[in-house]
């Protein structure tokens, strides 16, 4: 019976595990983040030239290395150009939540961050990022005619799923090598300052969670405790060869019964008399001692001064 229950429990666990695996989102750490194709007067490279650029964002909270990754571009089906990101350059390691910018200028000899391909402003551009094992990490198609000069196609914020055209006006400014959305305030702090200036909301919600956590533990250990007590009882009955009914009877026997049995045993073993000279009185003794009453627990140890 128990084995069946354990089997069902394990199957359920497996099922839950498999289901949740199926729902997992892409866990690529590196994503394409912003692309500018027609660079007239935007960001300059280290040679002072205006070229198209591709920004990659490390959305994880650990450094990730781009070395040996592949950047691929295609302007038409079947025509794909690949740029192998060189190994051995420490700058290819992208710090947590930071960016790497590649110049799509067709000049790979100018350095690690200059690709072997160019982007074509007149056609659609498919750009793919692959890891060293040629597994696709991220891809994007910049449709033809979407971008004007100095406009970029970017995720709304770093790593977000939605893309938008950044025209450079208002809050839609082009952001090479920096956050797509500038965080110039502490949103959480401001939210608390605005809605919970006196802290009551925080106190109520946080205390609710603290109580929930400890109530969960309480319930769990109430159940575990009961199971453990039942188990130990069952084991004890098994070892003594008695059933539930007998155990109940035994547990209900008054102290006097045990005293009488002990006395009878004592008489049998040591002093067998027909007539007793003494009167036996039995008084229930309440033991106030427990291992906890040990004095070592009562106070801090007395300082020993020599």
């Amino acid at each position: 019976m128990n084995k069946t229950k354990i089997g069902i429990f394990l199957s359920l666990l497996l099922l839950i595990g498999l289901t949740s695996c199926g729902e997992q989102k892409s866990n690529s750490k590196l994503v394409l983040n912003e692309i500018l194709i027609n660079n007239q007067s935007n960001f300059q490279d280290d040679y002072g030239l205006h070229s198209a650029w591709i920004e990659i964002f490390n959305k994880s909270f650990g450094s990730t290395d781009l070395a040996a990754c592949l950047l691929k571009v295609s302007n038409q089906p079947g025509d794909t150009v690949t740029y192998f990101i060189p190994k051995g350059d420490i700058l290819t390691s992208v710090k947590p939540r930071q960016h790497a910018l590649f110049w799509a200028d067709g000049e790979p000899n100018r350095g690690t961050f200059h690709t072997s391909f160019k982007l074509n402003p007149k056609t659609a551009n498919w750009i793919g990022l692959f890891d060293s094992g040629k597994k696709l990490l991220d891809q994007i198609v910049v449709p033809a005619g979407t971008l004007g000069p100095n406009q970029s196609y970017a995720r709304v914020s770093d790593g977000a799923t939605e893309w938008e055209v950044k025209s450079g006006s208002g809050d839609k400014y082009v952001t090479p090598s920096t956050n797509n959305k500038t965080l110039d305030s502490n949103a959480k702090k401001e939210k608390f300052e605005e809605h919970d200036a006196n802290g009551i909301g925080m106190a109520i919600s946080a205390m609710s969670v603290v109580f929930c956590g400890l109530i969960l533990l309480f319930i769990a250990f109430k159940i575990v405790g009961k199971a453990a007590v039942n188990l130990s009882k069952r084991n004890a009955m098994k070892s003594k060869g008695i059933d539930k009914h007998e155990a109940k009877e035994l547990s209900q026997a008054p102290g006097e019964v045990y005293a009488a049995i002990s006395m009878a045993l004592h008489e049998m073993q040591d002093e067998v008399h027909d007539v007793e000279e003494t009167v036996l009185t039995i008084t229930r003794v309440k033991r106030s001692y427990s291992p906890w009453s040990s004095k070592i627990y009562t106070l801090r140890e007395t300082p020993s001064r020599k």
Binding site: A203, M207, F211, I215, G225
Partner: peptide, 19 residues
């Protein structure tokens, strides 16, 4: 295990001081 709840109640000190 019900003693756990006392441990939870004492955390009011944190949020009282917070306020």
């Amino acid at each position: 295990p019900k003693l756990m709840l006392i441990g939870a109640a004492a955390q009011f000190g944190i949020f009282g001081a917070y306020m």
